Amino acid sequence: MEQEKLRILNDQHESIGVADRSEIHAQGLWHETFHFWLLKKEHGTVYLYFQLRSPAKKDFPSLFDISAAGHLLADEQPSDGLREVEEELGLSIPFEDLTFAGVIQDEIHLPLFIDREFCHVYLYMNQEEQMEVHLQKEEVAGLYRAKLLDAQQLLTGTCERIRIEGFIVDANEERHEESIEVGVHNFVPHETAYYEHLFHAINQILSQ
């Protein structure tokens, strides 16, 4: 399979070339991604949604992560990242309906690769009473939500466990609803600074 070509950047977010995705991760080069965070308000409570990564994923299998996300290819703009939302969650949303939360730097260091991202982060408040999602089983095993305040406390380190609710799709494509208790170890290890920026942006937007 032909390698994805991604734009390489310096730490000032200036484009300095193009390289294969595998080379970028092996060398820890800065590149760009699209992050989509889904929110919903019910009975005065705001919820933040997390996807459960498929157990078949090479990186971070069976961990909770951003509602939908993906790499931006060398010739793409942030608006092209919307394909990830459609592919992973089956949601068709116009780009103009998203709220820009900023470009956040995020680094994840693992024994075999270093992931350095400039993340173009967007928020979407779902207004539908019933949200119809269709998960891409190769990528996503389930969709869960946490109360925004609970998620903020857990992911910025001020509490150890929270309760989340959602569903998982099994190998027979049957959907199982559940409410479970999770800790920070159940989530992809994004930097605390990433989450602090994210929640600051969310709370600022909600207060407008």
Rank of each mutant, 00 (worst) to 15 (best):
E129K: 14
R145I: 03
S15M: 09
E84Q: 10
V103A: 11
E23Q: 15
D75L: 15
E160Q: 08
A101Q: 00
L91C: 04
F113H: 12
D75W: 13
Q127L: 13
Q153P: 01
E173C: 13
E87M: 15
A68E: 08
L48A: 05
A171D: 15
L148M: 04
E196S: 07
I164S: 02
A201F: 02
A101F: 00
T99N: 03
E129T: 13
H176F: 07
F199H: 05
T156Q: 06
V18C: 10
R116M: 06
I168Y: 14
D59C: 15
S62Q: 08
V184S: 13
Y194K: 06
Q130D: 15
S15H: 07
K40P: 07
Q152K: 14
L148Y: 06
D75N: 13
D20R: 06
A56I: 10
A56K: 12
D75G: 09
E84D: 12
L98S: 04
A141E: 04
D75V: 11
L155I: 03
G183M: 06
L112I: 11
I164L: 04
G70C: 06
L73A: 10
H134N: 12
L154Y: 02
L135A: 05
A19T: 06
Q12C: 05
N186I: 11
E181W: 10
L123M: 03
E2K: 13
E173I: 07
A201Y: 01
V133R: 04
H120S: 07
L154K: 03
I93N: 01
I205S: 00
E96T: 08
A141N: 08
E165T: 09
K5T: 08
F167V: 04
Y47E: 00
I16E: 14
D115N: 15
E87I: 12
F187M: 06
S207G: 14
V140W: 02
H31R: 01
L148T: 00
F60D: 00
E128L: 12
H176I: 08
G183Q: 07
K137I: 15
Q105H: 12
L38W: 01
N172T: 12
R53M: 10
F95R: 06
M125Q: 10
V18G: 08
M125R: 02
A141G: 10
M1L: 09
V184P: 07
T33K: 08
A19L: 06
I108T: 11
E2L: 11
D170I: 08
Y144M: 02
V140M: 01
Q105D: 12
Q105S: 15
Q136T: 10
H200C: 09
N186L: 08
H176M: 05
G70W: 03
M1F: 13
V121P: 00
D150T: 02
I205G: 00
K40R: 11
L39E: 00
E128G: 11
L73K: 09
L154P: 00
L39W: 00
L72Y: 03
I108D: 05
N10I: 05
G44E: 01
Q105K: 13
M1H: 11
G90I: 01
E23W: 07
A201N: 09
D170F: 07
Q3N: 12
I162Q: 01
S207P: 02
I180G: 05
I16W: 09
E42K: 12
E181Q: 09
D115F: 11
E177I: 10
A19P: 02
I180N: 05
S22A: 09
D59M: 11
Q77K: 13
